[in-house]
Design a protein around this nucleic acid. Structure first.
Lengths: 109, 109
DNA sequence: CCAATGTATTAGCGTATAGGCATACGCTCC
DNA sequence: GGAGCGTATGCCTATACGCTAATACATTGG
């Protein structure tokens, strides 16, 4: 019963998770909850440098997490799909569950 | 309006995503869809070495993705929470969506 | 065209981690 | 206790990636 469900697909899914596996990018996505923003806006909100930020945005965009719109000098970024937040919520749920489990364990000891 | 929603939390969530950001570990979780297994079982199913596999399992366990049960010589691993599969499904959905979008673009060109 | 401004890109450095090998630990049976 | 097996751990190398500084590119206004 060799599953081995398409190693190719695994690589793709892993790559997408990797995009979210970075506090800086999560901070960007979180900031974008408020709506579309320019890079400069994000520089102010997050504590990231402009170059750094730009690269993170490229990555987020190339993986379809954000969309962009150029207007003159500015580039406006926005989340492409609010499902991203669902993913984060599930993760947060796990974190809480684990935290409370740990607390229980500590008490029981 | 400095959001900056707890950088600490960001780090934790990112760390959890990072655990899933690895094809090998996704393969392990996928194999575990069939039920609990020993390390040796997983060595056979996946193409990973024993040492490597053990390390991945430690990581998955320390982050609460799998639970383990020792029975004599063997250690049985199983997914701790099927939510993991929901996360993967969402990611796959995105992949498909992006793929079809690309295809449309290619046709339109 | 030139200057100014916003954004993207490149190069270099430091850190983190996956993978393989060797080995240590734990358990069972003789 | 010793042998054998399953599992875990430490060391090492190669690679990937985030961050910074410097620079290039693009667009607008004078």
């Amino acid at each position: 019963m060799a599953r081995s469900l398409d190693p190719q697909l695994m690589r793709l899914v892993a790559a997408r998770f990797k995009v979210l596996a970075e506090p800086a990018r999560l901070a960007i996505l979180d900031a974008l909850r408020a709506g579309e923003m320019t890079v400069t806006d994000l520089v102010d909100i997050t504590t990231l440098g402009q170059a750094n930020l730009s690269k993170h945005l490229q990555l987020l965009h190339s993986h379809g997490f954000v969309k962009r719109r150029k207007d003159g000098l500015f580039t406006y970024y926005a989340v492409a799909n609010r499902d991203v937040y669902r993913l984060c919520d599930v993760m947060c749920g796990h974190l809480e569950a684990e935290a409370t489990a740990r607390r229980k364990l500590a008490l029981a000891r």
